[in-house]
Design a protein around this nucleic acid. Structure first.
Lengths: 148, 148
DNA sequence: CATATAAATGAAAGTTATTTTTATTTATAG
DNA sequence: CTATAAATAAAAATAACTTTCATTTATATG
């Protein structure tokens, strides 16, 4: 992720463009997989001299609330975050349980569900969580049958 | 949930049929909304005389892993659990952000996604998380516009 | 450019959900 | 009934995450 892009995203969110925020976005943007708050911290510390862990938590939470980064749900309770190169258009993610790589899943098909809920019960849909888990192509080939 | 049903479910999972496990399933089965481990603990303590909190955590985790109960994802990091009366057929849940009630969502439409991933990248889908959040019908009517 | 101000961050301490460990108890197969 | 493997209690530990408040910094405005 280019510095200009992260700056633009932050400005759009009415957040100040600070080195910490940009560095966190750059760090996640370099990865094709998700990272925990702790992992982000370890990676950006040398680049910034120093940064407090609460700052990392705060920024990750802000960006996730704003929808810039995606929370990845795993069986351990830790929160993990992924910054998708594709910042446009509603889509979801396929998460490889073996190598942690995240791929886009274009198909969503939840517009129909929202309509159904509204029609059936008079309710209103505000958000949804969709995450596909599995073994990615290269992991399937690399060690066929090694899936958990 | 009837005692016979919980016993049958536990036997099918090769888990011992213990009073603690049954009481936890009964407790969740009585609710139309999700509960945290702590809430389950408070509710079953008087019925069992005493039970340790780690036991509650262990049993909830077992049942969730087995797919008998569903983890509900909220913005606070706490784990919450829901036991669906409908134990047959693949489906998902609509969670009311206002009253915590959980309703079934029959439509899923993820079979196509699995096929797509397999075709496009050679990957394999093992599971998926889908949760619809919103305001349920009665909350919408009860206090129209009171949604967060 | 200078500066006022609201937002952002650091540092340290605190909170709490969740887990681990080990000894004891209990469900169940035979 | 009895053996045994699984389940539970109790207490302590862990670690993810938050809070607080003093200090610093980005940025709007003159």
């Amino acid at each position: 992720m280019e510095p200009e892009q992260s700056a633009a995203i932050l400005k759009q969110l009415k957040l100040k463009v600070t080195p910490r925020r940009q560095e966190i976005m750059n760090c996640l943007g370099r990865e094709q997989s998700y990272l925990s708050a702790d992992e982000v911290w370890e990676r950006i510390k040398p680049r910034l001299g120093s940064i407090g862990l609460p700052t990392v938590y705060r920024i990750l939470d802000e960006l996730a609330e704003a929808g810039v980064i995606t929370r990845i749900f795993l069986s351990d309770r830790k929160q993990n975050y992924f910054l998708c190169a594709n910042q446009e258009g509603h889509h979801h993610h396929f998460v490889c349980e073996s190598c942690r790589r995240v791929e886009d899943v274009e198909q969503c098909g939840l517009e129909g569900v929202s309509r159904d809920i509204a029609r059936r019960s008079g309710g209103r849909v505000t958000s949804h969580i969709l995450q596909i888990n599995g073994i990615c192509g290269s992991c399937c080939q690399g060690h066929a049958g090694a899936a958990p």
